[in-house]
């Protein structure tokens, strides 16, 4: 019995000694990162359109094409979705020399112009109808791209073919400056040669 007690005491002593030596220690804490929402925007860049030469097409119809690149930036961090709309103004030319008077200039706009956009590249998931869809442009904004809620976050790029058809060789006078012109506003005339410009406007709206 005495021998057992001695042995027991020794074992206890060793155990106490071992437990008194710490071997590891852990600590933890919560790292905190606050991410704030940024803005939402759309940008468009036009990569130019091919020239039209009058008189080449005997039926008086002309076509021209160009590439348009849309980029959207949704940095709100909400995944609220968005829609992009586009509108195209009339193709017009200003400061054209008035052939009926040496003292005046005219502004004209092309008649019967039809323009549509067709997806040719970029991330097609945001385009309703997929890559085959075409969007006719007019002076009234039309939705050309949609990101459903939960999608379209960050940066997205879309490239479209802008296909413009001019179905007649006529233009309408929209402005007359100077004196002595034989034209009146609204007169329809043959297309004066020159550079015609239209403004492609885009807008991005939150949600869809």
């Amino acid at each position: 019995m005495k021998k057992f007690c001695t042995l027991f005491t020794l074992v206890c002593a060793v155990s106490l000694t071992l437990s008194a030596l710490p071997k590891s220690y852990a600590a933890n804490g919560s790292a905190v990162a606050t991410v704030q929402g940024g803005g939402i925007s759309v940008a468009v860049s036009h990569l130019g359109m091919s020239n039209i030469k009058l008189g080449v097409n005997p039926d008086g119809r002309y076509t021209t094409t160009g590439l348009v690149e849309f980029t959207t930036h949704d940095n709100r961090g909400t995944a609220g979705g968005w829609s992009v709309s586009a509108a195209l103004s009339d193709f017009s030319q200003r400061g054209v020399g008035d052939p009926t008077s040496g003292n005046s200039n005219i502004s004209v706009k092309l008649n019967e112009v039809y323009t549509y956009l067709a997806l040719v590249g970029g991330d097609g998931q945001y385009w309703p109808g997929g890559g085959d869809a075409q969007y006719y442009l007019s002076t009234t904004p039309e939705t050309i791209s949609v990101a459903e809620a939960g999608f379209g976050m960050g940066f997205a790029s879309m490239t479209a073919l802008q296909h413009t058809m001019i179905l007649t060789s006529t233009a309408t006078i929209t402005e007359i400056s100077g004196s002595g012109s034989k034209y009146a506003l609204g007169d329809v005339i043959g297309i004066p040669a020159g550079i015609y410009e239209a403004t492609l406007s885009t807008n991005i709206n939150s949600g869809i």
Binding site: L21, S24, A26, A27, S30, A31, A33, T34, G77, M153
Partner: peptide
Amino acid sequence: LYELFDKTGLFAGTYRSTVTMNLMA
């Protein structure tokens, strides 16, 4: 409309991570 492990853009909010340090003999 999401599936597990889908990639999304970065959401706004307060993100947290538990950092653990351990010291061993």
